[in-house]
């Protein structure tokens, strides 16, 4: 007997392809972004169906939510002209050939991949008691492969650095009406509580620093949009410090672990959970500040090189 979920899965897969195509084929940038956010939500449903709630949470919060906000913010700063109806044929042809090559490579990799059923599950499962946490995803991200996570934070810090160096058009805040203040009064405290909950939950169940940071960052964006907090230039140093503290703290942890155990990012035995929680809490605050700072951008100071 076939699984009754197959109807849902096939609908979801077709919907994903359709929304992806509509987004790419759209001539209007706003429409394109909204469809892209919809694609993110459908993709996160797909991750739920693949039994990967951690990825689903991250995709919904970061892929659909924060990325969508950043794209809309960028659109508002662009002087947008509707795209010319026809793309130059050579460009379309080259893009088509390259896409085909990537698809072929993925298909070949999928066919040649050894033993799809197990993956890293067995290796991770065997070492879970050394990780300090009970959620295997957090164990991989913050302990077994924390080097990868460190590099992800480097990428995020680099992105913010580039935005700050290039400068961006100041955000055009419009009055949002009398209802926005009560809304912010409810949403901002709740976002802080939920971020803390997601962070704490990451040790045992789906959740963790990035999801928590996305929620916290969104709360910060609500504050900025509602003009409850106006990032002044004199706050710049403090904001940059908070944004850098995640990467800095992680690097310090790596150096500290190197001194204490002789291995980079191997936490002292028995104290793994404390190390992971401290790193994750720092990351949450720092990544949230980074996301909000990316949203606000920075105006270039005139008269300086």
């Amino acid at each position: 007997m076939t699984d009754p979920w197959i109807v849902f899965d096939v609908t979801l897969a077709v919907g994903l392809l359709a929304v992806a195509w509509l987004s790419l084929a759209s001539r209007d940038a706003f429409r394109m972004i909204v469809l892209f956010m919809m694609f993110g939500l459908l993709a996160s449903l797909g991750w739920v169906r693949l039994n990967a709630p951690d990825v689903a949470l991250a995709e919904a919060a970061v892929g659909a939510g924060i990325t969508g906000a950043l794209l809309l913010r960028t659109l508002s700063a662009l002087r947008h002209e509707p795209k010319e109806p026809s793309t130059a044929l050579p460009t379309a042809f080259i893009a088509g050939v390259l896409s085909l090559m990537i698809t072929t490579a993925l298909v070949v990799a999928f066919i040649l991949a050894p033993d799809l059923a197990t993956g890293y599950d067995r290796d991770v499962g065997a070492r879970m008691d050394q990780s300090g946490v009970t959620n295997p995803v957090t164990a991989v991200l913050l302990n077994f492969r924390s080097y990868d996570t460190l590099l992800e934070i480097v990428v995020l810090a680099a992105a913010l650095t580039i935005v700050l160096m290039l400068g961006s058009k100041p955000i055009a805040l419009r009055p949002l009406g009398p209802l926005f203040v009560p809304f912010a009064k409810v949403i901002v405290p709740v976002s802080i509580i939920i971020a803390g909950y997601l962070l704490w939950l990451g040790a045992s169940r789906p959740g963790g620093a990035f999801q928590a940071a996305a929620v916290l960052g969104a709360g910060g964006i609500v504050l900025i949009l509602g003009r409850h907090y106006d990032p002044q230039e004199r706050h710049g140093g403090m904001i940059r410090l908070i944004c850098a503290i995640g990467l800095g703290g992680f690097v310090l942890a790596a150096i500290g672990a190197q001194i204490l155990t002789g291995d980079m990012l191997r936490y002292p035995q028995g104290q793994e959970k404390i190390w992971i929680i401290i790193i994750e809490a720092t990351l949450t605050v720092s990544v949230a500040a980074t996301l909000a700072a990316l949203f606000v951008g920075a105006t270039r100071r005139e008269g300086r090189p």
Partner: peptide, 10 residues
């Protein structure tokens, strides 16, 4: 519900 209400309002 709260986000939907404020979103609709905006």
């Amino acid at each position: 519900a709260v986000s939907g209400a404020i979103g609709g309002h905006l």
